[in-house]
Amino acid sequence: MPVERQAINAPAFHGDWPHGSPRDPTEGQMPQRLISMKQLLERIPLSKTEIYRRINGGNFPKPIRLGKNRIAFLETEVEAWISERPGTLPGKSNVG
């Protein structure tokens, strides 16, 4: 026996939006890529402890909380942070 569906009280859409088409505010922009702590540690020669020290001191991009025990960083912010310090990070080369 088919299930009877009830109508929803919503205005009908006839193909035209009142103020033009709705747009995604990020349309035309590159999507923001997130990198994990593990990926971050592969890119920069700092320990996790040192990264947290720098975050707390305002000297490193703040992470985005993805869950109770998971964070990520905006790749563009990390890349900008690295490019502001050419040759100043110990260990790995910042070139390229």
Rank of each mutant, 00 (worst) to 15 (best):
G28H: 01
Q39W: 00
P45Q: 04
K68R: 14
R33K: 14
Q39L: 08
L34N: 02
G58F: 07
L66Q: 07
E75I: 03
R65W: 07
T76L: 06
T88P: 01
P25K: 02
D24A: 12
L41R: 02
T76A: 13
A72L: 11
K38C: 07
E42N: 14
G58D: 01
I82W: 02
H19G: 09
F73V: 02
K62E: 15
P61M: 06
P86W: 10
P61S: 11
R23H: 07
R54W: 00
K68H: 14
L34E: 01
S36I: 07
L34D: 00
R23T: 08
S36Y: 04
G28R: 05
E42I: 12
P90Y: 01
P86K: 03
P90R: 04
F73W: 01
L41F: 00
G58S: 09
R23Y: 06
G91Y: 00
L34G: 05
I51E: 01
T88M: 08
W81Q: 02
M30C: 09
K48P: 03
E42K: 10
K62Q: 09
T88W: 04
K38A: 15
K68T: 11
L74I: 11
H19N: 15
R53N: 09
P63Q: 07
P63Y: 08
T26M: 10
Q32L: 13
P61E: 12
R43T: 09
K38T: 15
W81Y: 15
L41I: 09
T88Q: 14
P18L: 13
I55Y: 06
Q39S: 10
R54M: 04
L66F: 06
R23W: 06
R53L: 13
L41Y: 07
E75K: 05
R70M: 12
P25R: 01
P18R: 06
P18F: 10
L40A: 03
R53K: 14
I51R: 01
R23M: 05
P45E: 00
P86R: 11
S93Y: 09
F60D: 13
N69H: 15
N69L: 09
S47N: 06
K92C: 04
M37I: 14
R85F: 02
I35L: 12
R54C: 04
S93M: 03
P18W: 11
G28M: 00
A72S: 08
I82C: 01
F60M: 14
E75Y: 14
R85K: 12
P18A: 11
R65T: 12
R33E: 10
K68I: 13
L74F: 09
P31M: 07
I35C: 04
E75T: 12
F73D: 01
A72N: 06
I64T: 08
L46S: 00
N56V: 06
I35T: 08
R43F: 06
G20L: 13
G67Q: 05
T49W: 08
Y52T: 11
S36N: 03
I82S: 06
G67E: 13
N56Y: 10
G57K: 05
P90K: 03
W81R: 05
S83P: 10
G20M: 08
I82H: 03
R23E: 07
A80D: 09
I35A: 05
E27I: 12
M37S: 12
E50P: 00
F73E: 03
M37Q: 05
T26F: 04
P86S: 03
I35W: 10
T26Y: 04
S36T: 15
G87H: 11
I71D: 04
R23L: 09
T88Y: 02
